[in-house]
Amino acid sequence: MADDRKIVIDVENVSKTFFVRSRKVETIRQRAYNLLRARKNKQIAIKALTNINFSVYKGEFLGIVGHNGSGKSTLLKIIMGAFPADKGGNITVDGKIIRLALGMGFDNTLTARDNIYVNGTVLGLTFKQLGQKFSSILEFAELEDFVDTPLKYFSSGMRSRLAFAIAMQTEADIYLMDEFFGGVGDVGFMQKSDHIFQDRILQGRTIVHVSHQLRILKKHADRIIWLDKGMIKEIGSPDDILPRYKQEYLKEKRKRRKKVGEQLLDLEDV
C-alpha cells in the first residue's frame, strides 16, 4: 500500500462502550422511580470496540470481516457519525459518506420516485441533477415499470438495486456497505454487483465493505481488517487473511453447533 496516497478515513484510538441497564430507564417515570429506589439499578458497560486504529486511502476497497457481534456494524456506524465514539477516540473523514445496508434508507409508504428524490436531495443533489439522472437510476435498478409503486411492495432485491442505483449516481466519495449484497436471493443483482466492482464503476470512490460473503472480498478487496471481540486482530491482504479467517470461522461454527446445537449462517465458499 503506497503511503503517499491521500487518507480519507482516519480512525484513531476509537472505542465504543454501550451502557445497558438490567431494567430499562428511559422515561421520566422510570427515572424518578430509579432515584427513589434503595438498590440502584446499575449500568452494565458493554465494550463493543476497543482501541481501533486504521486509515483508509482514497479509492481503496477495504473489507471488514469478523464473527457476529465482533463490532463490524458498530464500527461502520461510528465512521458514518450515526453515533459518537467514546472520549479519547478520534475519527477524521474527508468526503461525503453514504451507508448502504439492506432494507434500510427508504420510506416504505412512499413511491420509488419520491424515495429517489428524497434520498437524492438529502445526499446533496439538486432537482436539476436528479432530473438528469432519474432515468439512468431507474434503468440501472431495472424498475422502469414501478416508478410510482410504493416501496412496501418491493422485494428485497428490488430495494437493494434501487439503493445502489441511487448511491452510484450521487456524489458520495465514500461508500460504507453493511452486508449489502448479503441475503439478496437475486442472481441478477449478484452478477451486477460483480460487474460494478470489476469495471470499477465506482472508480476513485472509497469502499468499506462489511460482509460475510468472502467471495466478493476475495475478488475485489485491497485490504482486509479482521475484527475479533471489538479489537483489530489483523490487517492484511485478502489472500493472507481470508483463508485463515474462514478456517477459524468454520472451527467456531462446529464448536458452537456442538455446544448449543444451533445452526449458524452458511459461509460462501472462498
Partner: peptide, 9 residues
C-alpha cells in the same frame, strides 16, 4: 430514522 442512520446531512 431511515435517513439519519444512513446519510450524513
Amino acid at each position: 430514522r431511515y435517513l439519519i442512520e444512513n446519510i450524513v446531512f
